[in-house]
């Protein structure tokens, strides 16, 4: 185990996979200069010359090239500087990458990872801070991955790079500097396997991305109130580990689902609906969602406070399901 930041863990995963497999290469805007905007691609150009491409500002082109290279047997790892910019490449993601295997009757394989730095970091307002997990959960053929810790980041990115199908890999910008213990060398986390980040008896909190950390903080506060919460981190939203989530719900009978995505038609909504459908008779209270309100991300720090959920929102949601 080594203690490292989230972005360092991703970098380690990328370097290890590039050393392991010559078909892995990197493509994106500014990925060489300054070691990339988030330093995840730092050192790649020196260590793996000819396998990193600093592109023009052309998201549709970048993802389009990625689809073709992947169909020809390569493993592109694409960085979209801000998740918001992926809207410029939606045809390439939705109509090309995701549907290619199906449309060709299984002939095509698109082993492409699209890394998506997302959410609020610095205050950059509505076009540089969005979270769109549910957009891609909705598309069959895509896998949606949301790591919450440096260790998960490493293990999930390595699995993503080895996946024969496209992966939308969400990296919360605020998480880049978070530190944690990361296993050295070969470390893979299977998709569709949730992780219990904290065991508890009273309430299940399904937490996505940064909400895992905030739920852990909330758990400490709730302990003082006498509530013992269990935190389930799905880690991949598609495929979704419904089994582990439902098992926890059956134990506690009370659920809060929280994420930073909009709670209206967001990633939390699908999980809440699944629980309501599968575990109705086990529930002692209605499922409560915690997410962003249905508004664009504002600029002012004072306004952002009212958009991005914090530990306090988890605490009040737990109180709701307990009463």
């Amino acid at each position: 185990m080594t203690v490292m930041a989230f972005n360092e863990a991703l970098r380690e995963a990328l370097h290890e996979e590039m050393a392991r497999d010559e078909s892995v290469f990197v493509m994106g805007e500014d990925v060489i200069t300054h070691g990339g905007p988030y330093k995840v691609t730092d050192g790649v150009a020196e260590k793996f010359p000819g396998r990193i491409f600093e592109t023009p500002i052309a998201e549709a082109g970048i993802v389009g090239l990625g689809v073709g290279a992947a169909m020809a047997g390569m493993n592109p790892v694409i960085e979209i500087m801000y998740l918001d910019f992926i809207t410029c490449a939606m045809d390439e993601v939705v109509n090309q990458a995701a549907k290619m295997r199906y449309m060709t009757g299984g002939q095509a394989s698109v082993p492409m990872v699209v890394r998506l730095p997302c959410g609020v970091g610095r205050l950059l307002a509505a076009q540089h801070s969005q979270i769109m997990e549910s957009w891609f959960m909705h598309v069959p053929g895509l896998q949606v991955v949301v790591p919450s810790t440096p260790a998960d980041g490493k293990g999930l990115l390595k699995t993503a790079i080895r996946s024969p199908d496209p992966v939308m890999f969400f990296e919360y910008k605020r998480t880049y500097t978070h530190k944690g213990e990361v296993p050295e060398g070969e470390y893979l986390i299977p998709f569709g396997k949730a992780d219990i980040k904290r065991e508890g008896e009273d309430v299940t909190v399904v937490a996505i991305g940064p909400m895992v950390q905030k739920s852990l903080e909330a758990a400490v506060l709730l302990e003082d109130e006498g509530y013992d919460i269990e935190i389930v981190d799905p880690r991949t939203l598609s495929p979704l580990d419904t089994e582990t989530i439902c098992e926890s719900v059956r134990k506690t009978g009370r659920v809060v689902v929280c994420g930073e995505d909009s709670s209206f038609a967001g990633s939390v909504s699908e999980i809440a609906a699944m629980i309501a459908e599968s575990c109705f008779s086990d529930l002692k209270a209605p499922v409560v969602r915690v997410g962003s309100p249905h508004v664009p991300m504002p600029f002012s720090a004072e306004l952002v406070k009212h958009v991005v959920p914090e530990a306090a929102n988890v605490v009040s949601a737990v109180n709701r399901v307990m009463n």
Binding site: R51, F53, G64, L65, G68, A69, M71, A72, M74, N95
Partner: peptide
């Protein structure tokens, strides 16, 4: 929609 992917297959040939 094929223009990007074809450029991508060409990129694959160049890398390999």
């Amino acid at each position: 929609a094929g223009i990007g992917p074809t450029t991508g297959t060409a990129l694959a040939s160049k890398i390999r």
